[in-house]
């Protein structure tokens, strides 16, 4: 792989791989931890493929390459998710592993809460739904304001009202997380 700035100061592929591996390790969902090398490989392959195709024709900015890796990681997560689903479908019910940490009642209750949250969000006024969803995803109000294209004040109000709506809705369904 060549350096396009003529410096000749190009880190090795091993270094690149290591850097990307660290980033992926940090963001990889727990259920995918044992497949994280696959994510890194997928991102590397995509970047290298792009680099190969562009060899001698154009320089690629770092932000562009990050985008490519970023998209490849999400793509690979989706692929792994589909694979897991197929694997689960292929297991007969008697072979299904039963999580030992929760009782069937707890799992049913948890499922009920999951469905309740999604259903309450679905019924919510769109702008409140957007604000609350980001809050539930763990975003700060300023980050949410940036994402949604609103002022911080407006976002804060909508988060407040939306959370209240969500709680009222869950209570009306007899649910409390």
């Amino acid at each position: 792989m060549s350096s396009s700035n003529g410096s000749g100061d190009t880190p090795s592929l091993t270094e690149l791989y290591e850097k990307l591996r660290k980033a992926v390790t940090a963001v990889c969902p727990p259920w995918l931890q044992d497949r994280r090398d696959d994510l890194v490989q997928a991102a590397m392959m995509r970047v290298m493929d792009l680099q190969e195709r562009s060899e001698g024709k154009r320089e690629l900015s770092s932000s562009y390459l990050w985008k490519v890796a970023h998209s490849a990681v999400i793509d690979e997560i989706r692929r792994q998710r589909r694979r897991q689903e197929v694997a689960i479908e292929e297991v007969t019910p008697g072979d299904m592993p039963v999580p030992s940490s929760s009782s069937p009642e707890e799992r049913a209750r948890s499922r009920e809460i999951d469905d309740g949250i999604q259903s309450c969000l679905e019924q919510m006024v769109p702008n409140r739904r957007e604000a609350v969803t980001l809050k539930l995803q763990g975003h700060s109000v300023p980050d949410s304001a940036d994402i949604l294209g609103w002022t911080v004040k407006k976002t804060e109000n909508l988060v407040y009202r939306g959370l209240r709506d969500l709680q009222d809705c869950l209570i009306s369904k007899g649910l409390k997380p």
Binding site: M1, N5, E15, L16, S61, S63, D146
Partner: peptide, 26 residues
């Protein structure tokens, strides 16, 4: 500034020359 492309090896090693605003597309 966005850093000059320095080959695939460079993209993960570059410094903070590109601003948040650029990176975020704003």
């Amino acid at each position: 500034l966005v850093l000059a492309a320095v080959g695939v090896g460079g993209w993960l090693f570059q410094d903070a020359a590109q601003p948040d605003a650029h990176r975020s597309g704003r």
